[in-house]
Design a protein around this nucleic acid. Structure first.
Lengths: 240, 240
DNA sequence: GAGGCAATGTGCGGTACCGTACGTTGAGAA
DNA sequence: TTCTCAACGTACGGTACCGCACATTGCCTC
């Protein structure tokens, strides 16, 4: 457990940015729950009973095709919320949400969120801005899938995960990363091997440690920076 | 000009679905404008003075990378609106909007849309549902870029365009399609050649005619159907 | 301390797409 | 009629990734 983790209590940034009145209305109904690795938060078409505000957990939005092939659409950590379809009005989505990194989250009955959303207050503004950030992330994922190498995409994926974790270590097998990136497991092995040879990461049996983040950013395509800049612009910064 | 085009007056479906009170508030401020092929509606970072409701024009949301490579993120026709960043709160986006098929659109001063949006009425619900449909489209684009062949993606692109046009003919050079799909022009030539040999389309110097739509749908990957089904679910159907 | 199994490594032929270079065709202008 | 140029066709070596098969490694269990 890093120094950072013990000093700065991890918190969901959307909840943290609420006015005290709004938080007072929601807080009594927030329920702290564990998010174990691999837990499916929702399947395509599921009507969500709850929305989730991750604290130190990470959830991936994944699309799984008819033939079993998959691809990650976006990542949600303590910067966001799981279940935007509820307040967007569609109730369900075509994707699956699955816990990529174990941890905790606050959960809230869907109806309460919807009620608060339609009070037209700060929560609504926050959630809409967050949704736009999500849109940017999806768009950039599409572009990255089209134009960039597996090596570059692995860097992007590592950085996106790192930003949502309290430490520089993530628990994740290469097979799972392959599912997220929508490539072969062997492709991830090769790409990760290169990064290890360069001293950027160290990994062993599902434990990845990022040793040199600046170098990682240098190897990455522009996609990470674009999403990061846009997210920072759209959302309240965590330590402001 | 097809029979369909002259009988059914093309209309923007979002505007058509408004309550009469809301439409009465907006209608006086709607301005009918021409959308010429290639017109850039906005560049990344631009704060939009207007939003646009396409009638018989099609606008592509395109992301252009630092090295000039590009990829289409989504398509907007008379089912949608250009300028969601205005009511989502971000004011700008990282993508470019460019007219892919010439035609007309209603434009509206951005502030008026924002004001109406924050009245919490039907327009807000409509726009949010439309935004979710857009999200689905972007997500599916990402998946399709990852897993499907240029042949399949061309089919998807043709179908998406066809759904937003009054006839079965589209004016589009292979070079422009290549920009949208983010592939080489030669790749489109090959894929389009196959479709022509199969009798699915006929094309010549920027004029593409779809001859056999059912066959086109058969050759397409699942991505088109997923987006279509989700869009129909989320948005009011045009002839209901 | 041997066995079992998940995680990772490696090799190899196949293929879809790329970058590049040119050739062909057709519509409109001079 | 001829010129010109945009649109489209074709060819070819290079490469990134795929699908598959199999070898290795290390943790955990018995």
């Amino acid at each position: 457990m890093s120094a950072t983790e013990s000093l700065v209590a991890p918190q969901n940034q959307l909840l943290a940015a609420l006015s005290s009145a709004e938080r007072a209305r929601l807080e009594p109904h927030l329920e702290l729950v564990q998010m174990p690795l691999g837990k499916v938060v929702y399947e395509p078409g599921d009507v969500l009973p709850y929305v989730y505000f991750p604290i130190d957990s990470i959830v991936s939005l994944l699309y799984v095709m008819a033939d079993g092939a998959s691809a990650e659409i976006s990542v949600v950590g303590n910067d966001g919320i799981i279940g935007i379809a509820l307040f967007m009005g569609g109730e369900t989505t075509a994707s699956r949400a699955i816990v990529q990194s174990a941890g905790k989250a606050y959960r809230l009955i869907g109806k309460r969120l919807k009620d608060e959303f339609h009070r037209n207050g700060q929560l609504q503004l926050l959630l809409l801005r967050y949704t736009q950030a999500l849109l940017t992330q999806m768009a950039q994922t599409a572009v990255c899938n089209r134009h960039h190498s597996v090596d570059q995409q692995l860097c992007r994926w590592l950085l996106l995960s790192l930003d949502r974790l309290p430490s520089n270590r993530l628990e994740m097998t290469q097979a799972l990363i392959a599912d997220m990136l929508g490539v072969r497991r062997e492709g991830v092995t090769e790409a990760a091997g290169k990064l290890q040879k360069l001293g950027v990461i160290r990994y062993a049996r599902g434990q990845i440690t990022v040793l040199d983040r600046p170098k990682l950013e240098g190897l990455c395509c522009e996609c990470y920076a674009v999403v990061k800049r846009e997210t920072d612009r759209l959302l309240p910064s965590p330590h402001a």
